[in-house]
Design a protein around this nucleic acid. Structure first.
Lengths: 236, 236
DNA sequence: CTCTGTGAAACGATTCACAGCA
DNA sequence: TGCTGTGAATCGTTTCACAGAG
């Protein structure tokens, strides 16, 4: 149940290699946390991998593998202990560890980020709000005053934030990312939809509604063509 | 240049399988389109895979493979012909083909989707806006009147829309997805952050700011630990 | 000589099948 | 019997190395 070095794998560290969480798994972990929190709040004590899979649309085996990677263990016959699992998931770096972020951009998109009820549920917090347009600075949003970019370095130093959400217009993305990099931000969730290169040492994860939709359309198309070729996918 | 059946791979279809675009590629294609459009608007005629890779943070080989999958060809020494490549990318299903979508949810998140300048650039269009809250219905947003869910089936039938963006509160996601499925929608971009299961026959792609941020934090952490172990990653 | 295009190898994630425990 | 946990096989993408065209 602990870790039992399977067979090979003896590089330098006798430790279980807490690093080895695959990136796709990493992306799913927050979803698991949300599900387990829901169940905890609903008063349940146990939850099986199968049930989690059904809710999230993954396979049960994958759920078990992911949870194992996160350091969570379950009990045969019962499933996973809800509170304990929540605690394990929260203990992961990036889920509770690096939980503060800066928001750049206070337009509609930025407001939507602030209003996201998921933020709090994931244990995340927007520390400060910045904007590049002078006429947007000094407004009060969600209880915080919008700051000019010039205040960035100081804020990063003070809060120790390493993450930023970039919710500006595409043509401001370059300037903003530069400022963020200079201020010491390490990771950016870029919602701007800009097509410009970012500073190399920044870890950037992009998302934009339009790309997401376009990709979805493509996947849908691919899936339907596949169905037409296969006949029935599964029938035992 | 056409397709040349490599070696093995001869199941049933002697055809080039125009279906065979891998899903990760499919997700990147909209990004390429954006870059090539930018360059076209900037007046450039040629663009190399290396340059595209640098802008988007991918490897040059990957760019070439992706563009090849999309049916675009380049010329040695010059790179890819910008206008021609834009046309090729636009010709793909889901990039210009299935380009209309329905929006459910007219709160801040829905407004952000409507305001996304990327929408138009990707050739996408929000056909109609719906909401579950009666007091939000009948407002006019972005030139369109917000409709009640009861108008969904008719709208889907009329427009032939297969895609929907779900931008409602988490607790409304279940009801909304059910209505969408019943109305004949096939693919949903779910921005609600809900942890409830969706109808099985729907293709659902989820995104929420919080999960995205949390995953980013995790990736950042993983990357930094890796750096610490490796010494220098690249030095020839 | 530069940049595309591609077989083949390498890699990593998902799935399968089954061992083990309550 | 029900569910977790995991070696092993499978599947698919990314990367490498080089052939080929302008």
């Amino acid at each position: 149940m602990r870790l039992a070095p399977p067979a090979g794998r003896a590089y330098t560290s006798p430790m279980p290699d807490p690093v080895a969480i695959p990136i796709p798994t990493l992306r799913r972990l927050p979803e698991y946390l949300r599900v387990f929190r829901d169940r905890r709040d609903a008063g349940d004590s146990w939850l099986s991998s199968e049930a989690v899979g059904q809710i999230l649309g993954f396979g049960a085996v994958q759920v078990r593998r992911d949870l194992a990677a996160a350091g969570a263990s379950g009990s045969p016959k019962c499933g996973y202990p809800v509170s304990e699992t929540v605690r394990r998931l929260e203990a992961l770096p990036g889920i509770r560890g690096l939980s503060a972020a800066i928001l750049v951009g206070s337009g509609r998109l930025g407001e939507a980020v602030l209003a996201d009820p998921g933020m709090e549920r994931h244990g995340l917090r927007i520390e400060e709000i910045f904007d590049l347009s002078p006429d947007r600075v000094d407004r009060v949003l969600d209880g915080r005053r919008v700051l000019p970019l010039s205040r960035l370095p100081e804020t990063v130093r003070r809060t120790g934030c390493r993450l930023a959400v970039l919710a500006v217009d595409p043509d401001q993305a370059g300037a903003a990312s530069l400022a963020l990099a200079r201020a010491g931000i390490a990771g950016i969730l870029d919602l701007s939809g800009a097509a410009s290169p970012f500073p190399k040492d920044l870890l950037v994860r992009r998302f934009c509604f339009a790309s997401g939709l376009a990709a979805l359309a493509g996947e849908l198309d691919a899936r339907e063509r596949k169905k037409n070729l296969d006949g029935f996918p599964r029938q035992t």
